[in-house]
Design a protein around this nucleic acid. Structure first.
Lengths: 193, 193
DNA sequence: AAAACTTCTTGACCAAAGTCAATGACTTTC
DNA sequence: GAAAGTCATTGACTTTGGTCAAGAAGTTTT
């Protein structure tokens, strides 16, 4: 498995020596998931979190009525999983599925705790990452409350054009909180402009 | 200012000695905000974060179209502010307003960094809190995408009945992502059942 | 106590999005 | 290469929520 993307990700955010990287890598286990494979399901107690090396995942809730709502797509260089449930040993409410054949580097609960405790650079990176992620989620919540479906779609088109190529439209629709039909009509309307 | 609520909050989450608490308290500054006072505005570089001792705040975005969307209400025993922007020294996109006369304990950027660096109990508490908050925001995002306005209102009624007593309905409406008129009609419909 | 203001409710109407069903274009499977 | 399956589109219709405007009830100001 190619680990250079993970190194790149770390180097972009912190100063890290080769030794430190190797130490961390030794705690990881490469894992490949098949297309459509369910990696984690609501009710599970997560055993690991992961870093996407290649491929694409979706992380989503299923409401009591059975409605699926994707809260994010994890492409290359993203982390995914449910860290809180993993650390606490409590059942997660989230689901995680591979949308393509996906290569990942996973890290188990025990190894995560070890790295967090023993590698200051990793702890710091985690804390900063957590704060950034928080900002992102708050933003997304604000936008989901304020913006029209068309606005949301246009933003996604601008911010993640490649994602729209690789993911089926009905998944994009549930990410935006609308039906596939409505998304199709929005796309038509835009193309006519 | 009564600081016992803050002590209570810390004790609920960690073992902390009186000395440690006093040390932390020395870094805080009590501040009272008037009803409707704007505490923080989009574009500001936040100088502090705060803990609510008594009163109620709303934290919200204002979209390009001028639509206000509240992402949370901070009542007694909540933290508020924009930690990420404060730490990075970047302008926040969030607004924070007092909905009542509100007593708070504020902590400045410098003192926050000091506490985070020097008080292990505080760092740990922050990291755990951050993870919990993350889960909360992800949850809220999922619900905002999946649930009907009525479902969301009923959940709020169940989870935070007192909040609905103290906050005007038009604020509740923007928190739910609907207009005050729609909320009024939902309430009527429910009362007829 | 009157006037001004704020908040909530209600009605009439309109626009946006959901539902259901059919169709067509591709892919995949056998 | 036929059959089955998947996905996006479109149409007809319904439902939901938004908009605009008026009014009622309660507060605050003067």
């Amino acid at each position: 498995m190619d680990t250079s993307l993970l190194l790149k990700e770390f180097q972009a955010r912190t100063n890290i020596t080769s030794e430190e990287f190797e130490q961390y890598l030794a705690l990881c286990e490469p894992r490949r998931f098949k297309k459509n494979e369910i990696i984690m399901q609501a009710g599970d107690i997560p055993k690991f979190t992961l870093f996407v090396v290649s491929g694409c995942l979706r992380q989503y809730y299923v409401s009591a009525e059975g409605v699926e709502r994707i809260i994010y797509f994890a492409e290359e260089r993203w982390w995914a999983g449910d860290l809180l449930s993993m650390r606490n040993g409590t059942p997660t409410e989230l689901n995680l599925q591979a949308l393509e054949a996906t290569d990942t580097l996973t890290i188990s609960k025990e190894n995560w705790e070890y790295a967090f405790k023993n590698f200051p650079w990793y702890a710091e990176l985690h804390i900063k990452g957590q704060q950034r992620w928080n900002g992102k989620m708050q933003n997304q919540l604000g936008q989901s409350l304020a913006d029209s479906p068309e606005t949301k779609y246009l933003r996604l088109l601008k911010e993640r054009p490649k994602l729209l190529q690789r993911v089926p439209q009905y998944h994009i629709a549930t990410y935006l909180g609308i039906t596939p039909e409505t998304l199709s009509r929005i796309r038509k309307k835009i193309s006519l402009k």
